[in-house]
Amino acid sequence: MIELLQNLQLAIGPFVLPVVIALSGLLLLITIIYSAAVFHHWRSRKTREDLEQKWLNSSEEVITDPGSDNLQQTQLPPYERRDDFLNVLRIRNLASDKTVEIYRRKGFYKQDISDLSHRAWWRRAQALHRLKYVSLAGLQDEVTSLIYDSSREVKLAALYSLIYLEEFPDLNPIKFFENFNEKQDSFLVIKLLPLKPDKSFLRPLVDSKKPRLRRAGATLLGQPNEPKFLHFLSKLTKDKDKEVRKRVAESLGRVGSLEALPILERTSEDNEPTVRAASARSLGRITHEDSVEILDHLATDDTFKVRLAAFNSLSHFGEEGRKAIGNHWSENRRLAREAIFESYQKPVTP
């Protein structure tokens, strides 16, 4: 047996030796590459910083906007290569004010505009992200078309860019939402809401047979301090999908006008606790005695989350709210104590 063991070692030995030599060679190579990379990155960082300083000190003034003709006349000396500059941006990850200034003044974004149709997804996505630092006026169509790009990352980059467009893009709402996965809907809505989509975009969503689209529509109808879509919201309070009804209740709070109160009164009587809880939260944003009255009723709800939201909202109403909270002291002592504490911390809803 011992002999067998030793024979095995003798048999394996010749194979192990080249492996050890090969791996040692590889280790040496990787170590050299690593050291060279460290040195190169250190040197190029210094070079980039010098270049950046030089550019900033230059008196050359160029730039207006992407559509301007005088951009075509910008001549860059050969050593001031765009790629060097882009490295500055990449290294910083988020552009600093200085790099944005150079980006504008030197007209580097011209290349980014052409990169919007580059075949590599990351070139298209990165160009979009940088272009937001200059005006995207005149690029409305390009950005809109990139929403339907084959790459997920480019589509997301286009979504991030929407806020920088001058006006709401010409989008087919159904096609727009179906271009993304349902799981991404809340992100789409977050990106669309600040753009204040108009009736022509919202109507197809509200009328859609797909709950997914009606849900998105219900959120987008809740534009802050904008009561013009209340009739749509009122219609959706009867929706068979509870998530749509919940979102309607949330949107009514964002609208925040007195006209939303009667609709909220209706949603506060919904069979679904999540809808009632959302209604309670929204009522806290509308200062009116009727809000307190409805909340006073919701504070006796069977479901904890509804009571919690009602007490929390009552804490926004100052003395009047505290009085209502006091009515429920005996049956909801902890919630009432918490809400009274909160009411002294929060400013009264204007």
Partner: peptide, 30 residues
């Protein structure tokens, strides 16, 4: 039961492999 050259070879192999993996992850970081 184990001869010295084989022992040294095997220990070297294990060490080199360990170091290699660490240096490769540093390269990823770099």
């Amino acid at each position: 039961w184990i001869n010295l050259p084989f022992a040294i070879l095997f220990i070297t192999l294990a060490l080199v492999y360990g170091i290699l993996l660490s240096v490769l992850s540093l390269l990823l970081e770099e």
